[in-house]
Design a protein around this nucleic acid. Structure first.
Lengths: 181, 181
DNA sequence: GTCTATAAAAAGATAGAC
DNA sequence: GTCTATCTTTTTATAGAC
């Protein structure tokens, strides 16, 4: 935790970047090594297999979700409003981790799917006390999923124009009003 | 339109099935040929390349969206309620086409991303007259995206328990009430 | 229209030098 | 810790027989 090996993190960053910007197909060990500026052998010293590389990304996601759950709980503007606003992709470390692990999940990685499921469960647990009932919780979670979905799909352009600015304000207000206890 | 070549459709069905159930990685030309009961050479007669095979699936999606938009417009229970309920994956031809083309989009196919974007635009156009304002339209579209997202991810189990039965009824009622003009 | 055989490239992984 | 070289398997695609 105090002294993370630099090359290891570089490889992980490069692999994540390839998944986010170029899609699953482009995220090969070869490409990750090249993007990180190491050789394939160098990469394989840190991550002995493709599975190990993917596990590294999944671990990173789990750690980022820990901080996110804490931030949701502490948000002054309310947990629901904060959660929805943070569901709009902003290219921060958590967003990149979610997108890249989503790509792994679609490649068929069971560990990636499990991590995403777990993330979603933890979000639901922290939001539950802040909404009216189960239908309200479903609504909040699904809007959040939808916001991520539009960024996780279609590598180049987002699937749609995700609401931002005043449109996002109006959406958040509408949802907060509909789910308030 | 009247006499679709049988082998061609079989190959397309097999390719779609592989994408839906086994994920992108498993949907190779070899596997599609085997699943369709033809040889690789036989497949390549109908689809000269992987791109052509993917284009075949995208065309199928476009045709199914045509019918779906008509069904939304004609729904007796209201466009929004019908649209949301039909966003829950039911393994019908349209759902399978959406999931499989989503997988192609994540593989990096620009044509697949464009078809999904177009589908979403057409849905928005047909729903717009049935909702209060732009924020309400965003809400409906995002909940629908969320419902699909949870099926498009994680090949084996859906990412979460998608609401069904009374939970779905309550969710639809909540949304319909929040967006009614 | 459908087949077999095979080429050509890319991917994951191993061995061992430095 | 990092490198080069090499092996194996998989995937796309071509050639040409039937």
């Amino acid at each position: 935790m105090s002294r993370p090996p630099s090359a290891r993190e570089s490889v992980l960053d490069a692999f994540e970047g390839l998944l986010v910007t170029d899609g699953e197909r482009a995220a090969t060990m070869d490409a990750a090594a090249r993007a990180a500026g190491v050789s394939k052998g160098g990469l394989l010293y840190h991550f002995a297999s493709k599975d190990a590389l993917e596990a590294g990304l999944v671990d990173r996601l789990r750690r980022l979700v820990d901080s996110d759950v804490a931030a949701i709980e502490a948000a002054p503007e309310g947990a629901v409003a904060y959660f929805l606003r943070s569901s709009v992709m902003d290219d921060d470390p958590l967003d990149r981790a979610i997108i890249s692990v989503s790509r792994l999940a679609q490649r068929g990685s069971g560990a990636a799917s499990a991590a995403l499921r777990d993330m979603r469960d933890r979000w639901a647990d922290v939001l539950r006390p802040h909404v009216r009932d189960d239908a309200a919780l479903d609504l909040v979670m699904l809007v959040s999923d939808g916001l991520y979905f539009n960024n996780a799909l279609g590598g180049d352009a987002p699937l749609t124009a995700v609401p931002s600015g005043p449109a996002l304000d109006a959406l958040v207000a509408l949802v907060v009003d509909a789910v308030a206890p």
